[in-house]
Design a protein around this nucleic acid. Structure first.
Lengths: 236, 236
DNA sequence: TTCAACTCTGCACGCTGTACAGATAATGTA
DNA sequence: TACATTATCTGTACAGCGTGCAGAGTTGAA
């Protein structure tokens, strides 16, 4: 690939890099939630005037877009690229990896689902998922459909999980969040919502990893049931 | 129920109702997207000073919450409450009804998934869904888990569908949006993303009702496969 | 008739994204 | 070495945001 044509232009050296700005944005998001990453706050974090940020990104939407791309790029492909593993296990590894990476930055999740994920890293993840489902024996159309089903599930789960948080900041431990939910659900009036009241414990666990895997496995069951019979080790 | 203790207090009559404010908010959302429903714009729409809105709602978050509740309340229960229908058909009816109601107001969708849906209408929908899955023969725990799986799918689908829109305003026809997506996906470089490029047509249809139902049915397949054998007409 | 409660307005504050003009620094060229 | 060009950063500013406070005016109860 060509050398990226640098350093030949006049003008003072940049005091920052795009990455530093994205670092600052992510730090602010982690500390203060989705609204904390204002252009002014980012600028203050990196020590420049607010409008200096526009030297690096044309507008705030571009910052968000770049940040989303960076987060998707942090997903470790190694776990589920290994074709020697059973494909269902590879899907689970991908789903868990994505959930872990994204829930590490709950403030960024609204930004992820606030726009199309069409950057290079998003495409790369899509490509890997299509490969994986092809390995599972699905034809290209079913593989595409199944991949979107999985994408909807992963991002939908995380979005609802984050939406449940009462305040910004890092994600509290799962057990703590479940306890909070249980308190809320046990207050449900049983005379109006008998089944909801009876299912309070199960509903408190909606945001758990266990429920996440349960749902994922039900979907994989449904996906495999729909295809014609195929061996588990479809391989290459 | 008790008469809501009205009209006995001093002070001038209100010029508006809460409903008028929610109407105005929804109109603005429909026309200009999620950010168009500012307190000032709502106030202008109903013809009062911006801070007069705070007579009816304590803050903007309360307006959003009430609006979400109203939208969930518009879901027609009649379609899927009918126990004479096969349960899978009832689930599909619910899923389609919800999607139709919400995609009528794409600008409101980010508000829906931006916070917990814990109002009375949300609880009522949850209750109905638990009933439905109990009718399907699922035990309470599985019914609860399956209901959350379905909720994640429905709201995740709609969220991703809305996130794909390039501009605010009413949802263009499905065919038009698919065409736009197809144009984008056919531009995918096949040398880097061969499977994505090959699946362009299927991926363009991710936002279609067909894909929505396909995914829903795969999930129902998976849910039923996981439970012990049960007759289709589990009934009461 | 007086009083207290309530609704609405004008004004203001601090926040947001971002446009414009100007000072400064670094470069390629003469 | 001097100059012209260009990129970077700052100061200032504007319109819009949510919302708090003080006050004017309207209404029902005592």
């Amino acid at each position: 690939m060509p050398v990226p044509a640098q350093r030949t232009r006049p003008g003072p050296r940049r005091a920052l890099t795009e990455d530093q700005i994205l670092d600052a944005a992510l730090t602010l998001l982690d500390a203060g939630g989705a609204n904390a990453a204002s252009v002014r706050a980012i600028a203050a974090q990196v020590g420049v005037a607010p409008n200096a940020v526009y030297t690096y990104f044309p507008d705030k939407a571009a910052i968000v877009k770049a940040l989303v791309e960076r987060l998707l790029g942090q997903v470790d492909h190694g776990v589920f690229i290994d074709r020697d593993q059973p494909w269902r296990q590879r899907v689970e590894a991908l789903a868990l990896e994505l959930r872990e990476r994204l829930s590490a930055h709950p403030g960024a999740v609204p930004l992820l689902i606030g726009g199309p994920m069409d950057g290079p890293h998003a495409l790369a993840l899509n490509e890997r998922l299509l490969e994986l489902l092809a390995d599972a024996g699905l034809n290209p159309t079913d593989a595409a459909r199944a991949s979107y089903l999985l994408i909807v599930y992963v991002f939908g789960s995380i979005a609802l999980e984050v939406a449940d948080l009462p305040q910004p900041g890092p994600l509290p431990p799962e057990s703590e969040r479940i306890d909070t939910r249980l308190d809320a659900f046990t207050a449900t009036p049983a005379e109006h919502y008998p089944r909801t009241a009876a299912a309070a414990a199960a509903m408190a666990g909606y945001i758990s990893t266990e429920q996440y895997l349960w749902g994922l496995r039900r979907m994989l069951d449904g996906i495999t049931a729909s295809t014609t019979a195929h061996t588990e080790a479809a391989g290459v």
